[in-house]
Nucleic acid binder design. Structure first.
Lengths: 107, 107
DNA sequence: TTACAATATCAAGATATGTTGATTTATGGA
DNA sequence: TCCATAAATCAACATATCTTGATATTGTAA
């Protein structure tokens, strides 16, 4: 029950659904890319990324001071279905801004 | 997004997961059966049943003053997967008390 | 070591959700 | 019509969650 509710409550927020969808569509992203692309302040983003990670949807890989988040694989059946459902929601994704690659990360 | 979040938020409560699991296991139940079996006060149960119904998991059929709730069919793919996930959670279901059938419904 | 950049965490306030007891609505029978 | 029962809704309070700005942590380079 706990694990199930943790997954479900992680999904129960529009911001996190958007983050999941965005990373699903664009692949691995670092926090500052997400900040730039999704126009969210850092503490807010960091909080939601942690929730998604703790719920088993995301993994983090640290490279120096950067933290790269990506969809965790393999996902179990329910999380896979949830992601699939999110994949076909009609929501407009902002374009990816790769601030980390062009050295524009000054947040 | 709205529909998805409505489904997800309906699942995001231990009480509602138990109710879904109970009705899934026992079939159509009236509110007073659920009250007796799950030992919940009427207003609490009624609230959660409404949320599950509005989220598309349950349907109601009224017979006189009784309201019978059952799993809505057909369920879409995501709701079906969610229900399947709930079906295999290790939670102990209380036995069904069919108070409505033996005329013991005096709540 | 010191400074700085990227990320994480904390504290406070705002909003949403769950619980309970009281009230209301709806249905059927006297 | 009037009453009783089942169910739904309301109001008040408690608890949880989200947002923001401030602070702490971690890694890199001078």
């Amino acid at each position: 029950m706990e694990v199930f509710l943790k997954s479900v409550s992680a999904l129960n927020d529009e911001t996190r659904v958007l983050i999941l969808r965005f990373i699903d569509a664009n692949g691995e992203c670092c926090v500052c890319d997400l900040q730039a692309s999704l126009e969210m302040i850092q503490s807010r983003l960091s909080r939601h990324l942690k929730i998604l990670k703790d719920a088993g949807f995301l993994r983090v890989e640290r490279k120096g001071t950067w933290a790269y988040y990506s969809i965790r694989t393999p996902l179990d059946r329910f999380r896979t279905e949830a992601l699939e459902e999110i994949r076909y929601l009609s929501l407009e994704l902002p374009p990816l801004k790769k601030s980390s690659e062009i050295g524009a990360c000054k947040i």
